[in-house]
């Protein structure tokens, strides 16, 4: 499986104009890769995840292409995408676990879902049961109502159902955010095992929680204000991130062990720009401590070492390793 995204632009229609939620994003995902897509609210990561599968009426595809295994995906055509949805690309949307019908038993809901996709429930049941056991859910979960399951259990249930037909690409949108710390670990590890067991070839894991991504993702892509700031293998990103935003973001995370009295962490002052009329040039310019005149022109997203790309003019100067905390 290979995914190539070239200069993808997706805007939201509103009465006040177009919100440029995704404004020119280019990257690739290789076979078997788990890519983490991180960023803060409003950066466009959820738009990116949704636009690959579920471009709805409010969004419009303004430009760019998506190629899955060499085939261009007709993301703007909701009906044409039906052919790819669930079989080739699957998504776990952001509030999936809250969307389970409370008055339906889980097994019945799964059956209806599969029948609507043209899959015979009876035929696929053995595989379904095998996977449920794999993620640590007993078979009796099919006889229960959603309210009887905990958040972590519901989320794992949704994960199994979304990947039942072995899609090439899975997009997981904030699946750990609403969970407790112990469930987060179970869900994240289940996600990794799906790739290891080849239920899914590659994944895009969308979340604001960089530390979870560090645990399970092979590569990390950081977005800011609708554009990609940096993309690199996870270890490289943690040790030698080059984009000022990435470095400040990582520096603002309290790893267990850092204490206020010893080392006061700093956040990033200011707020992201409005996507209705984004500024020209580098979008991080107003908050960047390293901004120079050249930043009035938008920096290109260039590869600085194999697999590591950054969008910053000063990438050659930012060569010092990340300051370690305490």
């Amino acid at each position: 499986m290979s995914l190539h995204i070239t200069d993808l632009r997706v805007y939201y229609r509103t009465l006040a104009g177009d919100v440029k939620a995704l404004d020119g994003v280019t990257f690739e995902i290789a076979d078997g890769e788990i890519m983490g897509l991180a960023g803060e609210s409003g950066c466009g990561k959820t738009t990116l995840g949704n636009s690959l599968v579920l471009l709805d009426g409010r969004m419009k595809h303004v430009g760019g292409t998506v190629m899955l295994d060499g085939i261009p995906l007709p993301i703007a055509d909701f009906d044409a995408m039906r052919h790819f949805r669930y079989r080739d690309i699957s998504i776990i949307p952001q509030y999936a676990m809250s969307a389970l019908n409370p008055i339906r038993k889980i097994g019945k809901m799964v059956g209806e879902l599969l029948e609507s996709r043209g899959v015979r429930y009876g035929e696929i049941r053995p595989e379904l049961e095998r996977r449920l056991e794999l993620v640590g859910l007993g078979l009796d979960v099919l006889q229960r109502y959603p309210i009887e399951l905990s958040g972590g259990m519901k989320q794992r249930m949704v994960m199994v159902v979304s990947t039942l037909l072995d899609p090439s690409l899975l997009i997981a949108d904030e699946i750990t955010s609403a969970l407790d710390v112990s469930s987060q670990k179970a869900v994240a590890q289940a996600l990794q095992s799906f790739r290891d067991q080849k239920f899914v070839r590659s994944m895009i894991v969308v979340t604001h929680d960089v530390s979870i991504l560090y645990q399970i993702a092979d590569t990390l892509a950081v977005m800011y204000a609708g554009k990609l700031a940096e993309k690199a293998p996870t270890d490289v990103m943690m040790q030698r991130a080059k984009h000022p935003y990435t470095r400040m973001l990582i520096a603002s995370l309290p790893e267990v062990g850092v204490r206020y009295a010893e080392h006061k962490l700093t956040g990033i002052a200011g707020t992201p720009p409005s996507l209705l009329n984004p500024p020209t040039g580098c979008r991080f310019r107003d908050r960047c401590p390293l901004a120079i005149e050249q930043c009035a022109e938008e920096p290109p997203f260039v590869e600085v070492e194999p697999g590591h790309s950054v969008a910053c003019w000063r990438v050659d100067e930012v060569a010092a390793p990340k300051d370690s905390a305490a």
Partner: peptide
């Protein structure tokens, strides 16, 4: 703000 919130505020 999420994109949703940005959209909502510009709409409001």
């Amino acid at each position: 703000m999420t994109v949703g919130a940005v959209v909502a505020s510009t709409e409001s």
